[in-house]
Design a protein around this nucleic acid. Structure first.
Lengths: 245, 245
DNA sequence: CCTTACTGCGTACCTGCTACGCTATTTAGC
DNA sequence: GCTAAATAGCGTAGCAGGTACGCAGTAAGG
């Protein structure tokens, strides 16, 4: 009990546990469980992850898992930290803007490998080792900007929010698109039919301009949108650094 | 069947339905169901909304709901559109920056009344009348900027992403804080104990600077963070308008 | 008046989380 | 060694939640 003050799940993620145990050797390790859960989520989505499925895949019974994990929510937190891995080391000597763009692209790439990551409900600050490494990487890029520490945290939190929000929305939309491509292709048509120009003047103007007519290439659109919004945000950061840094 | 091409839930939200019916008078209306579901979500959160609870609150049986709604997911989409109401009319003659700030504050206020709104999974573009009204309001503010329609959509989508992401994160954190205030208060202490300065140099530097030491006033912190990130994004929009508009 | 469409709802099934307690196993201490 | 304590696996069972199905009763159309 030397890790007295830490919440149980945090202690688990950092692998802090008294090693000398008395009972029988565990036939199951936390790593096995997490790997199994991640494999299922990768293949069939987060909704397919049930305690029964995870255990079955390991040839164990459902309840055996509860010797290693407090609850399913616990498992979700731990597996999301494991799935995000570590960021690539930041190239030496990059300016902050290049660095944050590199960082954001890295997040996008990492989450692409585990799309369900963006769906895990967040219940606190990033307490796992991998999430913390990402946080550290972004903070480090801002080291030479002269911003006060608190402002750096604000900038990075805003960036995380934007990036995760964008990714979540993109994947939700992609899922909806896969479920029902027609509904999307007819979004413009639907608006034309249903949107009164007196109530929705700006939307109708946009529809008339044909913006929603070609929703064809979904992947590239999202990539472009992602970068577009990111650069807007970074422009804002630049202005902020000029003002304060 | 004059609304031939529309998905069922969209038709429901816009209240397009053939009026002449043959069977017995419905003792239940969609509005009742939605209002009941919203009341439960407001009082006890989205997780407390079950078909059984919604029906019980109306003095009906669970299965009666399925005559009005295709599935629970259907109900969630419809109730989220109903909950967001309409934006306040934009003051006349405001510049775009004031307008978008006003808009974002409006979103924040509206979602504060129904915090669960940010948790409803998004499965498509904003197809309901109220969500579309918000979309229209933000687009309208950009009317005089000279941006091409497509760019306006990009700016507004980015803004929505940021605002919703920020709100979702804030509420998730607030919920985690309510569940376990100690874990939060000790976040800085936890990092000190667990974070190796060689692995997490930037985080440790921030911790040493005392940024995480006073997490006291949660509400105001979030308000400030929200505005901070928003202004960064709007700075970016300003730069974009200078460049392109 | 009979047919038809439609509403409410009871029943039942399935999936999923997890509390509890039993049994077997390993190690610590004597 | 031997006993007691601690611990792993797991079977059972309870509970909650979504929803398919089919029956019964009701109101409008012909």
């Amino acid at each position: 009990m030397e890790n007295n003050e830490l919440p149980a799940d945090v202690a688990l993620m950092w692998r802090l546990r008294e090693t000398p145990r008395r009972g029988p050797k565990p036939s199951l390790t936390l790593d096995d469980i997490v790997a199994s859960a991640i494999a299922i989520a990768d293949a069939e989505g987060l909704a397919a992850v049930s305690m029964a499925r995870v255990a079955e895949r390991l040839g164990n019974s459902t309840m055996a898992l509860y010797r290693h994990v407090k609850s399913k929510d616990d498992l979700l937190v731990i597996m999301s930290d494991a799935a995000i891995e570590r960021p690539e080391p930041m190239p030496e000597g990059v300016d902050w803007r290049t660095g944050l763009t590199f960082w954001a692209d890295g997040v996008l790439t990492a989450i692409r490998r585990h799309p369900w990551y963006a769906k895990v409900p967040i219940s606190g600050p990033p307490a796992g080792p991998n999430n913390l490494a990402w946080f550290d990487s972004a903070l480090g890029v801002l080291a030479d900007t002269g911003l006060p520490e608190e402002a750096k945290v604000g900038v990075v939190m805003g960036l995380i929010t934007y990036v995760q929000g964008q990714i979540r929305m993109a994947f939700d939309l992609a899922a909806g698109y896969a479920d029902n491509p027609d509904a999307f292709r007819r979004f413009g048509a639907t608006l034309r039919k249903v949107a009164d120009p007196r109530v929705y003047p700006a939307v109708v103007r946009t529809v008339e301009a044909g913006v929603f007519d070609e929703v064809g290439s979904f992947e590239e659109d999202n990539e472009a949108d992602f970068d577009f919004g990111l650069q807007l945000y970074l422009d804002g950061v630049a202005a902020f650094i000029d003002r304060v840094g």
